[in-house]
Structures are given as structure tokens and as C-alpha cells.
Amino acid sequence: MNRTDSAVPEAARAAAGPKPSAGRARTVACNLLALGVVLLLWELGAEKMASPYFPAPLEIAAAFERLATQGDVLGNSLWDHMGASVTRLLVGFALGVALGVPLGLLMGLYRGAYANTRIVIEPFRFIPPIAWIPLAIIFFSGIGRYAFLIFLGAFFPIFTATMVGVGRVEPIHRKVYQVYGAGKLQILRRVVLPTVLPDILGGMRVGLGTAWMTIVAAELTGGESVGLGRMMVNYSELLRIPEVVVAMLLIGALGFLFNEILLLAEKYLFRWRWQVAL
């Protein structure tokens, strides 16, 4: 692609955007600095408190190493715990997307369907997923129980964002396709979906947060022996705070990682937009 950038300075500048590499390096440096500052303050605090219930960062690291190499007191490895939580999360989250997006599109396209049924739909939004735990324990077992609870947490943000997004479809964009004789399916694929996709991804990121909250709560009560939430409960009963903090930090780190993956997807998919909302 031979762009004649020199001849078109204004557009070329807009296309190039701000110098990405220099800005990114700076951002990474700032983030590492912030992390260092927090760790330092934590270390100082731990030294001052000198309490087994306020472990220093190094103790956390040691606990992490023990868990990673030797497994926990019940013989489950750290990877079993993480694997169990991530699998449950992904299954429930995938269910949330698989139902939330089509239903959101449908209710967005046929506002009447939503308007006529919202008395059934809306109240469910306000029942926290963890309030379903007793019923989930009765009706489901194994991964189904967790998948159900996480689905409840992920569904509504995705569903609502999709439905609201459909309202953003510009009539003019629809008309562009209609004048060429495009049918409903083509308009759905070529106009509605591209318009709504940013909202879907946004809803997915919100849903991901609720999903993590839900899974830890579910694992705190569930009967299984693996899962990061389970591991946390086991160690809190033993009053072994470093391991509890390891579980907490892993949940945070995994959530962060998943969010970053979605953000990358957004950046790639929506490079046509001015900027990606962070």
C-alpha cells in the first residue's frame, strides 16, 4: 500500500495517531513504578506491624512458591485451583455471551418484545447471582452449578449493553444498504452487528467483573475441593494469611489478564474509531 503521506499531511497525521511506541514504554514504566511504590509501602507496613496476620510481600512470594511447587494441604496443586476456577468462569461466561448477545439483538430489534416482557426480565437483573447460590446447590452439581451462577452474573451486562447498542444503529447506515436491495440478514450482519459490537465488548468486560465476583462467592460455599475461592476458605480456616492473599492476588491477576485480552480485541476490532474507551 503506497500512501502518499507527504501530499496529504492532515489525513496522514490523523492516520498515524500519536507516536505509539514511546507513549507505551512510558506507560509501562509508570505502571511498574506504581507497583513498586505499593510493594514498598506494603513492606514497610508489614515491618511496622510485625504480625502474622499482616504478611510482607516476600512472605506472599514464598507462599506462592510453596503452593506452586508442593500444592496445598489437601494435595491439590495451584494449577488445579486456577484451572478449575478459569474453566468454570469460561463456561459460564460463554453461556452468558451465547444467550445475552442474541437475546439482546432480538429485543433491541423488536423493542415490542422487550416492552411487553420487561416485567419478567427486569426484576431478575436485581437479584444478585450469589442470592441464587442456595437454589444452585439444590438444582445443579459439579461445573453446572458454577456455570449457572456465573452465567447469571455475566448475562445481564452483556444482554443490556447489546440491546441498548441496537438503538444506536443509524437509520442512514441501514438505508445505505436498503437502496442496494440488501435483505434483513445482510443489514443485521453488515450494519447492526458492526454498530453494536463495541457495546457487546463493553458489556462483556463488565460481565467479566461480575463473573469473577460470582465465582469466588460460589466457591466459598460450594462443596468441591478445588477452585481459588475454595483454596482461600481452606487456608483462612487454618489462619494462614499468606496463602489467602496469594489466592486473592491470583484472582485479581487473572481478572486483569482476561480484561486485557478483551481490550486487545477491542483495539483490533475497533481500530476504525478515534480511540478505545478505557
Binding site: 500500500m1 503506497n2 500512501r3 502518499t4 501530499a7 496529504v8 492532515e10 489525513a11 490523523a14 492516520a15 481500530r271 476504525w272 474509531r273 478515534w274
Partner: peptide
């Protein structure tokens, strides 16, 4: 020369 530009990048 503008084939790959997105609408927000042109006048």
C-alpha cells in the same frame, strides 16, 4: 492514497 483511511480520518 486514501484507500485505507477510515471516515474519521478524512474531511
Amino acid at each position: 492514497g486514501f484507500e485505507r483511511h477510515y471516515p474519521h480520518q478524512i474531511s
